[in-house]
């Protein structure tokens, strides 16, 4: 819980300071200032995960986000997890609907995350007699997903930047679930390895 409060606190501070910067100095935003904030639940990256990121490409079809997730001890069988995630999402289409709404009917994404929890028995620990005793990492996961996003435009900021709030979903899986399914076409089904993530994003 302590981590969560700290994290929410940082997020609030950061969002309000960037809001301040916008109204006080209507100069172009510095390159490193994030373009959106994101908050997500589930999808294997936390009960709640929050972060920030950039929208890239000439057609603004790529989102790159960094998130910090939190899983309370109640769900880990001991101490809480912090999960650090990097995510890339590609949206091939963007459909304007009415005046202030837009829909990305399909998004495709990749993510990787790291769970540095002391709860996790490391598969690469020295206690194993040889390298690749266990071939996978117990703290680093790779994931893939597809999803969709619905956004509503907000009034433009004072310095003329378009702003938007949107909700998204991501249906995905991770490397270990995928390698469980691959050799087991009869014993497991795709539905059993899926995870769902739901989130909101604010472009500002």
């Amino acid at each position: 819980m302590k981590h969560l409060l700290l994290f929410v606190g940082l997020l609030v501070t950061w969002i309000s300071s960037s809001a301040q910067a916008q109204s006080d100095t209507p100069t172009p935003r510095r390159w490193y200032v994030p373009q959106h904030a994101v908050l997500q639940t589930a999808g294997g990256i936390g009960l709640v995960a929050g972060g920030a990121g950039y929208t890239l490409g000439s057609k603004r079809r790529w989102d790159v986000d960094a998130l910090v997730g939190y899983v309370p001890g109640k769900y880990t069988g001991g101490r809480a997890f912090s999960i650090f995630t990097l995510k890339g999402t590609y949206a091939p289409f963007c459909l304007p609907v009415q005046t202030r709404w837009q829909v990305q009917p399909l998004t495709l994404g990749l993510l990787t995350n790291y769970t540095p929890s002391a709860m996790l028995n490391r598969s690469r620990d020295d206690k194993y007699p040889y390298k690749n005793y266990y071939w996978w990492s117990s703290t680093v996961r790779l994931g893939v997903f597809l999803g969709g996003r619905v956004g509503r435009e907000l009034p433009v900021s004072q310095d003329g930047r378009a702003r938007m709030v949107s909700a998204y979903y991501e249906l995905g899986t991770n490397d270990l679930y995928a390698v469980s399914l691959l050799p087991n076409t009869k014993g497991l089904s795709l539905g059993q390895i899926l995870t769902l993530g739901l989130g909101v994003k604010v472009d500002f």
Binding site: T41, A42, I45, T76, F81, S117, S138, R141, L196, L198
Partner: peptide, 16 residues
């Protein structure tokens, strides 16, 4: 999320 935390799809971590 808390309300529908019994939904298996909504996984917080594969290690949960």
């Amino acid at each position: 999320a808390l309300l529908i935390s019994s939904c298996e799809l909504l996984e917080f971590s594969p290690n949960d």
